[in-house]
Write a protein that binds this DNA or RNA. Structure first.
Lengths: 329, 329
DNA sequence: GTGAAAGCGCTAACAC
DNA sequence: GTGTTAGCGCTTTCAC
């Protein structure tokens, strides 16, 4: 039946310790013995049992990633770069898709931290830090990704969009826009909050009309974009900032359908998650904010591995910056 | 330190067996004893160690999914529905992204089957069945997803696009197209082969020009679409079938950039992976083939769980069908 | 209705 | 340079 380390040891005429050490390069083994061991392994087709190993060592070589929406290209790309980074170090990725549900996030964190993974990457949908914090066992390696909290207990990797949004609003103002609206994501998220406050600050500084109706909150999951757009158009917006790639692409087609052309009928600033090349055409007439998704994923991967290696290292907060690319560039 | 089952047993004044049985509902335990056990568990904050458990039982409650490209919406959506199906049964998903590399697929399968997962879902990029088959331990539960092989050794869930493609080519012919081209995916894949042969058969039956230059092979990963399109335009195509959602969306913008309008300058049939609603505008002028991605994922999830439960059940081949939606509908 | 105890396959301290 | 062996935390058989 199942080939175990003892079978190999027996056939090679050595002890299980030697087999183990040979496999793991964990103490000196003579070339000759090594050879006998490898020969036996090959002959029997032995593969070390991963669960026995992780049970014994306590290391699972697996990281959990709590993601709000896998089918959103922004997160899908992040998963891809995290996976690349981790698999290079022999780690695996377990995905948990919360669909922006706090309950789903809650149960995922509970299950994954109960001996399934060595560390957790979390793009949290929680409204409060406490709720998240209460789920994580003390000392468990966690890195917050993309979305953070005021409390600085966990390491984090995120993207600041304050400056790009501030700048883009200023440029809309300079171009003559007076009523600039904004479509944000889920209000409770740190990303949304930062974006809205950058917008508010810029609008005030540029002397633009301030009006609560100019701020609309979409849903990162389903495309609530049309509803938001309609609301903003009713407000006679001449400029709109769309803070999320998925909603942005939906918005573009929705506007065209209504016969409204960005650059002609109104000015648009939009987040872009996608491969930029291929979408040039659609985005030619809009200012774009491009988040460093790949870097985000890679950095998150590096950070969680660091925390697993040295859990007592100082808690790092990495803040990446987006690229602002005015239309035509 | 770590709270174990013995700690609970001691505090509750029972044996570890009783604690185990209480937790797992695996033999009768008196209400009173149950109560003492749960109280102890709560007091100590005990969580059963997942790796000890899976080591002991041999069940990992985890499925591996070998995916060619996570950031491709088609697969991302599939992952999402697989995950939904599995998590409902208490299973987790480990993702391995092969990026259409046979070497990556090879090492992923090796690692995952070595005690990491209970079963494997594979959307294989392999050129031959043998290469894949050689990697899978005898009797290991495997379900092929989306891409299959001639040999019927493994259960599979895939989508047949023969009929939709045949039909769409006929309709192009009826609309007056004489030179219909096609952009397929990676030539070695079963999906690509089926699509090309449906095209060939229909083209022959409809008396369309047959020309090797009318068949172009793209790459499912990077957008090789522009190259394929250029080649087809040089052939003076008046109709084009694009067999992949990602390439289709790239193609649309590329064509527009060249000033070519589908429906006016040439007829287009395109696979659509995306949320159809939001893309209506772009796709208004093209015939669409819509694959049942969600059903594909869900069915794959169900199948692999079935195979794990009863490994000796007959090997099932599920073939789903795409929807063909002529433009305007 | 509950307990005692034997391992699952591996690693690593200790011994020589 | 290699062997012996305890034990990781849990499930489960056998016994009462």
């Amino acid at each position: 039946m199942k080939v175990t380390i003892s079978d190999v040891a027996r056939l090679a005429g050595v002890s299980t310790a030697t087999v183990s050490h040979t496999i793991n390069n964990t103490r000196y083994v003579s070339a000759e013995t090594k050879d006998r061991v490898y020969r036996a392994i090959a002959e029997l087709g032995y593969t070390p049992d991963a669960s026995a190993r992780s049970f014994r060592t306590g290391k699972k070589k697996t990281i959990g990633f709590i993601v709000p929406d896998i089918s959103n290209k922004f997160f899908a790309t992040m998963i891809e770069s995290v996976e690349t980074c981790l698999s290079a170090q022999g780690y695996h990725l377990i995905i948990a898709n919360t669909k922006e549900s706090m309950e789903r996030e809650e149960s995922s964190i509970r299950i994954l931290t109960a001996g399934l993974v060595d560390g957790l990457l979390v793009a949290s949908t929680m409204e409060s830090f406490e709720r998240l914090d209460g789920l994580v066992p003390a000392g468990f390696p966690v890195v917050l990704v993309d979305r953070t909290f005021e409390e600085k207990k966990y390491a984090s990797v995120c993207v600041s969009n304050f400056q790009p949004i501030y700048r883009s609003v200023c440029r809309l103002a300079a171009r003559g826009c007076r009523r600039v609206g904004i479509i944000g994501g889920i209000p409770r998220l740190s990303t949304t909050r930062e974006r809205i406050s950058a917008y508010r600050e810029a609008a005030a500084d540029c002397g633009l009309t301030m009006d609560p109706g100019l701020i609309q909150y979409g849903d990162s999951m389903e495309a609530g974009a049309p509803r938001c757009l309609d609301a903003l158009l009713e407000q006679n917006c001449d400029g709109i900032v769309i803070c999320q790639g998925l909603m942005a692409s939906v918005s573009l087609s929705y506007l065209r359908k209504k016969g409204l052309l960005p650059g002609r009928d109104l000015s648009l600033v939009s987040f872009v998650d996608y491969n930029i090349q291929s979408y040039d055409l659609y985005y030619d007439q809009v200012d774009r904010i491009i988040q460093p998704v790949e870097e985000l994923g890679r950095t998150a991967g590096e950070q969680i591995l660091r925390r697993i290696e040295k859990p007592d290292a100082p808690v790092l907060e990495r803040v990446l910056t987006s690229e602002y690319r005015p239309c035509g560039e």
